[in-house]
Design a protein around this nucleic acid. Structure first.
Lengths: 109, 109
DNA sequence: GAGTTGGTTAGTCATGTGGCTAACTATTCA
DNA sequence: TGAATAGTTAGCCACATGACTAACCAACTC
């Protein structure tokens, strides 16, 4: 589980890979089309795609000689869940602080 | 802007640093307390803290010889915004697909 | 004011990451 | 079937990252 978040965050830490995710959230696309806007050699780009797929953020399938890549929303949910947990925790904490402040206020008056 | 997301995702790709964020979302703490549960040399740990602070996820202040670290919720918001944008895009896409499917359905009958 | 505590700086090292080229395989099209 | 297209594999290189130790500074405490 920890490893999964590691991979997801790592995959999204690179602007090229994030751009691919952004492109893919508009719909699936073949490798060559995904590669086109990026000024780097194809093998390099393929390794970025591999990182994304290993992290579970994308899925790909080959038909004929064309490999089509698509996004897998589940992992973005994983990310969002982690984020929500953090936010919940610190909001609870802020609530407790507010409570404490209110109590202080009461004892003061 | 791109650089900011790079740094945030990168910072959170490491389990040690994520653990620190999780700890900090419960409230601020001095360096030594944050370090305690992690089985690594202090200088190593300090560099993790630096990565977090450089990314803007945390803030720290030194009073006397104690440095207190706290979380900066803004950057987690930055993260969430990116996430929401992706989700919106692909939900719109799914909506369009549904619309298309409905149109197909109508022409068929 | 000497020792302890809390943190910092400097420097080293192994490994990981991101980039490349060159050579290769497997489809599709003429 | 021969050429073009779409990916793939292998191997190289520079630099970043994460870990360590050793030495250091600053501020409490006795």
């Amino acid at each position: 589980m920890t490893n999964q978040l590691d991979q997801i965050f790592f995959a999204l830490a690179d602007p090229t890979r994030r751009a691919v995710v952004e492109r893919l959230s508009q719909g699936a696309a073949p490798v060559s089309e995904l590669h086109a806007p990026h000024d780097m050699a194809l093998p390099t780009f393929l390794r970025h795609l591999k990182v994304l797929e290993d992290s579970g953020l994308t899925h790909s399938e080959k038909t004929g000689r064309v490999r089509t890549v698509s996004i897998k929303p589940d992992q973005l949910d994983t990310l969002e869940n982690w984020l929500n947990e953090q936010r919940c925790t610190w909001e609870q904490r802020l609530d407790r602080l507010a409570l404490l402040a209110a109590q202080l206020e009461r004892t003061k008056t």
